[in-house]
């Protein structure tokens, strides 16, 4: 009888099940109508099957977003799991679409599905990449802006994983502040 190594036929389960969403800016429709669930996955193999099948972020049209969220969390501030939360925000300049965008987004995805934030990974809700003419953005969303330990741990690990130089900083903003801001910038609750 032949013994088959389970490694060769059992997919590698992820800690969480994830949903990938796509947003396409069509001004004739409501914001929610422009948001589509692409697919869900809960194994390493299925993550790659999806990632390898879809367009790179840098090929998307301006106004489009990808969002990866834990299953059951919708990629919007209003979701019960997001509304007391906030985001670590990376704003990219125009040159970075060519140089950094795709590798930053892939690194972000690997941080999420691999649970890179240790015991604080439970605080992660998801991540979003926004493709915009004036400059693309990538953000990691967490559940509770008042959870200083979790927010700062996630920020430090994330900054290191992206290879952001020590002398540069990234900021964390609450969704409540982003939703009610008057100007174009939101004040940072934390900086790493």
């Amino acid at each position: 009888q032949e013994i088959v190594n389970p490694e060769s036929y059992i997919k590698h389960p992820l800690q969480n099940s994830w949903s990938l969403w796509f947003f396409k800016n069509d001004k004739s429709k409501t914001w929610q109508a422009n948001l589509r669930l692409i697919s869900k996955f809960d194994t390493v193999e299925d993550f790659w099957a999806l990632y390898n099948h879809i367009q790179l972020s840098s090929n998307l049209m301006s106004g489009c977003d990808y969002s990866l969220f834990k299953d059951g969390i919708e990629p919007m501030w209003e979701d019960e799991r997001n509304k007391r939360g906030g985001r670590w925000l990376m704003t990219l300049n125009k040159q970075q679409r060519r140089l950094d965008l795709d590798r930053f987004w892939l690194e972000t995805l690997l941080c999420l599905v691999g649970e890179a934030f240790d015991d604080h990974s439970d605080q992660v809700c998801g991540a979003v990449v926004n493709i915009r003419t004036k400059g693309d953005k990538i953000a990691v969303w967490t559940a509770d802006y008042e959870n200083r330990d979790a927010v700062t741990h996630i920020g430090r690990v994330y900054k290191e994983r992206l290879g952001i130089p020590m002398k540069m900083t990234i900021g964390y903003q609450s969704h409540a502040d982003t939703a009610t801001k008057s100007g174009s910038t939101t004040k940072n609750k934390f900086v790493v």
Binding site: Y9, I10, K11, H12, P13, L14, Q15, V44, E45, F47, W48, A49, Y51, N52, E107, L110, V113, G114, E115, A116, D118, D119, S121, R161
Partner: peptide, 20 residues
């Protein structure tokens, strides 16, 4: 425990043939 996968482990599966 938590199923943590580091980046090199995950990247190793990107171009693996699909499970049957």
């Amino acid at each position: 425990g938590k199923r943590q996968y580091n980046r090199d482990f995950l990247l190793g599966f990107q171009f693996m043939p699909a499970c049957v």
